[in-house]
Computed example of a mutant assay.
Amino acid sequence: MTLLTLNAMQTNIEQYAVLHDVTLTVPEGGVFVLLGRNGAGKTTTLRSIMGLWRPSPGSVTFRGEDISALHTAEVARKGIAYVPENMGVFGGLTIEENLILATKTGKFDTARLNRIYDLFPALKTFWGKQAWSLSGGQKQMLAVARAIIEPRDLILIDEPTKGLAPSIIDAMADAFREISETTTILLVEQNFHFAKSLGRDMAVIDDGRIAHTGSMADFAADKALQDQLLSLSA
Rank of each mutant, 00 (worst) to 15 (best):
I168P: 01
F126L: 13
E178C: 07
V83D: 10
G163M: 04
T105V: 09
A145T: 04
L119A: 08
M50N: 09
A234K: 02
M1L: 09
I148Q: 03
L101S: 10
I149W: 01
Q15L: 11
V18W: 04
G136A: 06
F126A: 06
M216E: 05
A195W: 03
L156Y: 00
L6K: 09
M1S: 14
A224F: 00
F194Y: 05
T72Y: 06
I168C: 03
W132Q: 12
L119C: 07
E181I: 01
E96M: 12
T182N: 14
A221G: 13
E65K: 13
Q10I: 09
K104M: 01
G58K: 08
A122V: 13
Y117E: 15
G29C: 04
H71V: 10
N191L: 07
I13T: 09
G29N: 04
L113M: 12
L24M: 12
L142Q: 04
G64A: 06
I148S: 04
W132P: 01
Q226G: 14
T161D: 07
L225K: 13
T43C: 06
T184H: 03
I100H: 04
F126I: 09
E150S: 10
E28L: 01
F126E: 10
L142T: 07
Q138L: 04
E74I: 10
V33S: 08
T23W: 00
L113E: 05
K162L: 14
I210Q: 07
